[in-house]
Design a protein around this nucleic acid. Structure first.
Lengths: 120, 120
DNA sequence: TGAATAGTTGAGCAGTTGTTCAACTATTGA
DNA sequence: TCAATAGTTGAACAACTGCTCAACTATTCA
């Protein structure tokens, strides 16, 4: 690490200079934590995580999801837009109906990991 | 599933009755999604997830964390209280200094899973 | 005992989030 | 071509969140 950066970090009333600087070297750039938080934020809402868990079981259209979640189609559509833009779900249109499904397996893994923590 | 519940779910202008009801049987009770969302919400903030990632590397006191995260001790203390109450971190006091560390390995697993998704 | 320092807490504020409502587009089928 | 239905979108609003500030407690040490 550059000396200037070390100073910038540790010249305050810092208690464990050595440990702080060692840990700091192992951390990721700020941007990575923003991206990670933005990703995990998509799971941080009961409606949205239930929606994702439902899509884990079967592909579903907006109406189906609205019924399952007990909210309006509009609310579902807003959430799906978020999830689609974040590449967590994908969609295919068949006539008037748009079917949504999970884009990859990470969704399942993160939800499973969460439940595992809660249930142990 | 009880007939009444099925009706309650599907008597609306629901498009795929059968699929919706099958999926509904696989879903968890509402409370589970609230708990899961509450858990994952703790990772859904850049400061907090960086804090957890730092604790993954080494136990740290409040001052150390404040320096690493670039926020006040007060802000760190507020976040640590949240994380402590949720059993994600634990603390030990040594004189004036309180050292924080991760309470179990799920934190690491969830963060790693998130980074894996971002980096693939 | 009293000054210094680590940490905690509550109030208050700015910024964000999830929802509904109403208006819109897209597609189907008579 | 027009009505019906699936879905999308933007505005608006209430609820929530994360931060700082100021005041507090806890511990050490001279």
């Amino acid at each position: 690490m550059a000396d200037e950066e070390r100073l910038e970090l540790c010249e305050c009333e810092c208690i464990h200079d050595d440990v702080v600087c060692a840990v700091n070297e192992k951390l990721q750039p700020a941007r990575e934590y923003e991206n990670l938080a933005a990703l995990l934020k998509l799971f941080a809402d009961a409606t949205r995580v239930k929606l994702l868990h439902a899509l884990e079981q079967h592909e579903l259209c907006v109406c189906d999801l609205a019924v399952l979640l007990g909210v309006t189609k509009s609310a579902v559509s807003h959430q799906l837009k978020l999830l689609r833009m974040s590449n967590l779900v994908k969609s295919r249109r068949e006539g008037q109906i748009v079917y949504y499904s999970l884009a990859d397996d990470h969704v399942r893994q993160i939800i499973d990991m969460g439940f595992e923590h809660l249930w142990e």
